[in-house]
Structures are given as structure tokens and as C-alpha cells.
């Protein structure tokens, strides 16, 4: 091992020879090539960017993330308010028209399985959420389409029922209502009855 590094480093040409420093560490020598100009540009660019960025956002009143968020949130809230006016009001004729279209049954099951199944279980027999197939209702005073529709929109967060109006579109809400009505009084054995008898 003692001799192998005695061989000098490979120097390719005279330019390199002139740039070689008088440094030798365990046989490692060093050139002193000038800094690549594009690298210097990147370096200065990075520092200048950082300086201006900090100045603008921390001292010159550039918009904060909170400002940007408030702005975007206000826009979305406006859209959502308009939507909730549209969706929030149950229109029986629209609902009646929707449930007779040929895909309605399929869509009803799909919406139920994607959103409701995890708590109300297969066929609505109940588990985390109440049994939907008996004649007892916990949160409703009347078991008609409009009542169910309005309840699904606002939910009952204390009891663990989310406000689905934030998530589901009007059509999906129709689908959920249709499914719930379709399983009503099918009396699938499952979770014990909760609430009062509502006809």
C-alpha cells in the first residue's frame, strides 16, 4: 500500500498544470479552477431572491398565507351559499322526476354504499348509526322525502351523523333519500330500535 499513491495524479494538459496548487493530502492535490460563472449567477440569484422575498413578505406588507386563505375562502363560501340555497330547498317535483329515471335505483344503492354503509350497514340494518328499516326514527318527526332530505343535509353531529349537504350534490342527496325510503319498514334484523314510532 505504501507505494501506490506515489504515482502522481493524472494531469491532462498545461492549463491544468498552471492551475494546480501546492497542496498534497495523502496524495490528493487541488486545482484552483475559477468558479463556474453560471454557478456564481445561481448563487447570487438565490441570495438576492431570498433577500427580496423576506423583505416583501415580512416587512413590505406582502400578503400573508392567512390573507390569501381568507380571500379564497370567501370566494368559495359565496359559491357554497348559492349552492346551499339551490340544494337546501327541497323541490318535490324535481325529486319525483329524478327517482323515475332508469338509473335511479342503481345510483341510490351506489350513493348509499359509498357514504352511508359504513355506519348504517348493509340494507340499513344499523350498527354505528341507527337501524333504518324499522318504524322508529330518532331524528325525524315525519318520515317523508322532504324531512329525510333536510335531515341528511344538516345531519346531527353530536350523534355522529355528518352534515352531508357539505359533501353530496343535489342528485346524490335525492339518491340517498330514495334509498332510505326504499328500505323503510323492511324490518331487517339488526340494531335495536331507537327513537319513536313515526309512521
Amino acid at each position: 500500500m505504501s507505494n501506490e499513491n506515489k504515482s502522481k495524479n493524472i494531469i491532462m494538459n498545461e492549463e491544468e498544470q498552471s492551475l494546480l496548487l501546492n497542496h498534497d493530502y495523502d496524495g490528493i492535490e487541488e486545482f484552483d479552477y475559477p468558479l463556474p460563472s453560471w454557478w456564481v449567477g445561481t448563487f447570487i440569484g438565490g441570495v438576492v431572491f431570498a433577500a427580496f422575498y423576506i423583505l416583501y413578505y415580512s416587512f413590505a406588507g406582502g400578503p400573508s398565507l392567512q390573507d390569501e386563505y381568507n380571500h379564497k375562502m370567501a370566494e368559495v363560501n359565496k359559491v357554497r351559499e348559492e349552492q346551499s340555497k339551490l340544494v337546501g330547498k327541497f323541490q318535490p317535483d324535481q325529486y319525483q322526476a329524478w327517482i323515475v329515471n332508469k338509473d335511479a335505483d342503481e345510483k341510490a344503492l351506489e350513493v348509499y354504499e359509498e357514504n352511508c354503509l359504513s355506519c348504517h350497514e348493509e340494507k340499513g340494518k344499523g350498527d354505528i348509526g341507527p337501524n333504518l328499516t324499522d318504524k322508529y326514527w330518532k331524528n325525524l318527526k315525519k318520515a317523508d322525502a322532504e324531512e329525510i332530505y333536510q335531515f341528511i343535509i344538516v345531519g346531527n353531529e353530536d350523534a355522529g351523523m355528518p352534515a352531508w349537504g357539505d359533501v353530496l350534490s343535489k342528485e346524490e342527496l335525492f339518491a340517498a333519500v330514495k334509498y332510505v325510503i326504499s328500505i323503510k319498514n323492511t324490518n331487517v334484523p339488526g340494531k335495536e330500535a331507537e327513537g319513536e314510532v313515526i309512521e
Partner: peptide, 14 residues
């Protein structure tokens, strides 16, 4: 530099 047996490119860059 040991493995390639060449001087380091730029001391001032280091």
C-alpha cells in the same frame, strides 16, 4: 479524488 486519481477541481469553490 483518491479513486479517480485526479486533483480536486476547485479549491476556491470548496
Amino acid at each position: 479524488p483518491k479513486a479517480v486519481n485526479r486533483p480536486v477541481y476547485s479549491y476556491r469553490l470548496s
